[in-house]
Structure formats: structure tokens, C-alpha cells
Nucleic acid binder design. Sequence first.
DNA 1: CCGAGTATCGAACGACGTTCAAGACGATAG
DNA 2: CTATCGTCTTGAACGTCGTTCGATACTCGG
Lengths: 242, 242
Amino acid sequence: MQAMSERSAPTARPRGRQRASHSLDTVLGEAIAILDEGGEPALTFRALATRLGGGVASIYWYVKSRDELIELATEEVMGRVLADSEPLTHGPDPLANVRALALALFDEAVRRPWFGQFMLRNRGMQANSMAMFERVGRQLMELDLTPRQRFHAVSSIISYVVGVAVDLAQPPPREFLESGMAPSEFLAMYADRWRALDPDEYPFAHQVAGEIATHDDVDVFRSGLDLLLAGLRLQAGAGSAS
Amino acid sequence: MQAMSERSAPTARPRGRQRASHSLDTVLGEAIAILDEGGEPALTFRALATRLGGGVASIYWYVKSRDELIELATEEVMGRVLADSEPLTHGPDPLANVRALALALFDEAVRRPWFGQFMLRNRGMQANSMAMFERVGRQLMELDLTPRQRFHAVSSIISYVVGVAVDLAQPPPREFLESGMAPSEFLAMYADRWRALDPDEYPFAHQVAGEIATHDDVDVFRSGLDLLLAGLRLQAGAGSAS
DNA sequence: CCGAGTATCGAACGACGTTCAAGACGATAG
DNA sequence: CTATCGTCTTGAACGTCGTTCGATACTCGG
């Protein structure tokens, strides 16, 4: 294991101080708080510095760049998800365990839109991201699959989770923000617009217009995840054909 | 159909001109060229202006903001994919058609990493993005599914395609760029790092280390897509249970 | 030839990530 | 107590970005 924090201040003590004093933990904590409140665009070095009660340049003592700051914040949150979801991996059915893990990951991405957005960037050897990959993969080791099938399956599942999460993380259209409507109202208006399309040219949009008005994002996610897992169960039961 | 280009210059004529003269088409064309060559960060108004042989402010005559520029570029490319993939929708098996559509979309996202990245933003009523949604959905109308199942399936499939595409669109790690290694070399080194992990703590990573060294991104994508479609075929054959 | 609408231009603004030399702080040694 | 050294913070600056503005060139119908 590599040391995750090369630098660390002797714990912040804000009492009777002339100059501000931080630590990697407080920097990361405030960064996450900003991300939670205002999303990615809100995470500015100047905003973070103001919040920490210091200057902009101080942050560079703890972090090499904005990208590294986001990377560390993402890893931090991934660590928490990893810890919280540990109990979900002991059920008898491996695919049910995978499902629980995927849902836990997705839940966090719904709570923190920026999290899903930046899981993508951590393609590297980040300890916690790798651990999640490992954890899902280990469940699949109990299924009758070739290593290649297992690798493909884990990659696909993670991509699906992240993909849907990122999709949801997109900022709502300006139209919505400016309208001041409730989300359900806006969706209803959206559905009406679908219904207004030519039924001959857009039969499908016409048919599912009602669904978009009442849909729940988590339902949609779970539905696709179950399709993926059903396909995987089929593959595992069919011997080792590729 | 809404008019896609409100403004249009009377075709550019670069002869004997003191001042530059553009049109929405040339602006979009050069923007796409820049995106193709240097990815999203390269698309700068100043770079685009230089390329068009004019000033920065001129671009704002055709486009309201950088976001709108990217939106229009994405829609333009989606239109081409839509046109190119039209012949793929007439096969006898609806799911095979969906598979062909998904692969066509994915191929374009591999060719143009920025395209996948920005399909996400077009959550709205963009004509061409909606048409792709409609086209996939119409294939599913031939299957025995409830409207809700159809809606979930289309959403999941598109999310999966976009999700994997965005994943691939991530810039390669600095480590790779600085190493000057060939991609296959780098992957091999990567696999070695996986193999170096503790086999007891990371049994899965150990098992699939070989796969990552030789994997093909398109194979991984196709594999997950087939799992998804297999699950969907199962659902369609099982009556209308949710 | 002229005036109104169309299209382009250079210069500027504010915000951002990042860098730098200077200095303040805390601990330790003499 | 003081000198010193490495750790940490600071304010000011640089360059780039998206965006805005008023002035100006161009085109075309009258």
C-alpha cells in the first residue's frame, strides 16, 4: 500500500491563530462539502480558500493540481462506499451480492452527482477504486465463467453503473431552472411534448410518453441492471461457451 | 421540425475579401475538425477564430455560447450516425437490429471521443438524439413487453452505450503519455502491476491480469451489450411479468 | 448614391488555475 | 533566551479562457 497522504499537518488548531492552518483532511473535507453543495463548477480554488479562511496558494501545499484534488475527493468517497457496503457481500447468491454492490454505488452517485462524474477519471490504480473492482470480481469467481467472461462482465457492470450515474449527474436543462416548475410538473410538460409529436413518425415516443412522466430514475437503473445480471446468469449456466 | 439554423450566410466566398466571412456550416465544420484533432480542451473560441481566419467575437453571431456550439456539433454528428445506420434497421430480428444500432453509435464514439462525452448533455429534445431514441424503441415494439419495460430497456441500452463510450473517452493517464510506450506495452506493464498485488487480498485482479493486457475495448463493449440483450430477450419471452 | 440591416473586428472584462518569492510559524539545539 | 531550519501560509502576479461591447465594414434594395 502506498502512503495516501504524503503531507499532513499536526491536526488543525484554529484557536488563537494569526495565520490559517489546514491539513489534508480539512482541505479534502471542505472540497467535498463544496462539491456536495454546488457540484463540480463550484469547486474553485478561490472558493475553497475562502472557506478554509486562507489564501489560494496554500492549497497547493497539499495538492498538486485541481485534478488531483478531485481525484483524492473521489477516492475518499469511494472509500466510504466501500466500507458501508462491506456487509452486503456475504449473501448466498453471488449475483444478488453484485446487485447490492451496484445499487450501493449508484445510490452514492445519486446523492453526490459529482461522484459519478469523476469515477470515470479514476481509470488508474487508485486503491479504493481497484478495491471495488476486486470486490465485484470476487463475487463472480463463484460462477462458472471463463476469466475473460468474468473480466468482461465486471467491466460492463461497472461501466453501466457509472454510465447511468453520469447521465443523471447532468445539470437539468436551463429551461427547467428558469421555469420554476416542480420536477414532476416539468416531466409532465415534457411528456406532453412527446405526445405532440406526429404519431406516425414517432410511434414509440408516443407510446412511452406516459412512462417518462412518472418514471423513477432508480427504477430505470435497477431494471437495466437486472437485465444485465439475467444475461450473466444465463451465460454462467450455459457452460463455458464464449 | 424546427429550423436547425436560424442564421445562414450567403455561402462563404473567400475570394478578394478584406474581412473574413463565415457561415454556420463552416463554423460547425471547423469546430468538429478541432474536436477531432485535439478533443474537447482544444475547442477554444480563439483557436476556432484563428482557424476561420477571423476574430473571436464573430463566432457569437452564429452561436450563443460555447455550450451551444458543442451541442450543435454533437447533433450534427448524431445526424450523420443516424443517416449511416438507417440500413441496419431492416433485419428480421429486432434485437439484432438494436445490436447493430448500438454498435454503430459506439463506433462513432470510439472514433470521436468527444462525441460520447457530449451525448450526455443532450438530455433535451434535440431532434437527432430523439430520433435515435425513437429508432431503438421502435425495434422493441415488435417484442412482447409492456410499455414500461420497453422504456426501461431503451433507456438502459442507451445509457450503457454512452457510459462505456464516455469511459473510453477519458484521456489516457499522464503516466502513459510521459512514458512514451506503445499502448500494448503500457497495458502489459499495467497487468504486471496487478499481478504484483497480494494474491490473497486480490485474487480476482490476479486472475484477470492477463485479460487486461490483451483486451480489446470493442470486445468488452460488445460482451456487455450481449448480456443486456440476452436479458431482454429472456424478459420478452417470459410474458408480461415485471 | 444612400441608408438600413447584416456581419466582423479589436479591445476589454472578470474568473479561473497556477506560480513565485517572501515571510510567518513551530520545534529544536546551543 | 536566541539562532536556525524545515514546514506552512501569503499576496500579488501571469496567462488563458468565455463572453461582451461599441465601432466599423460590407451588402443590397431603393
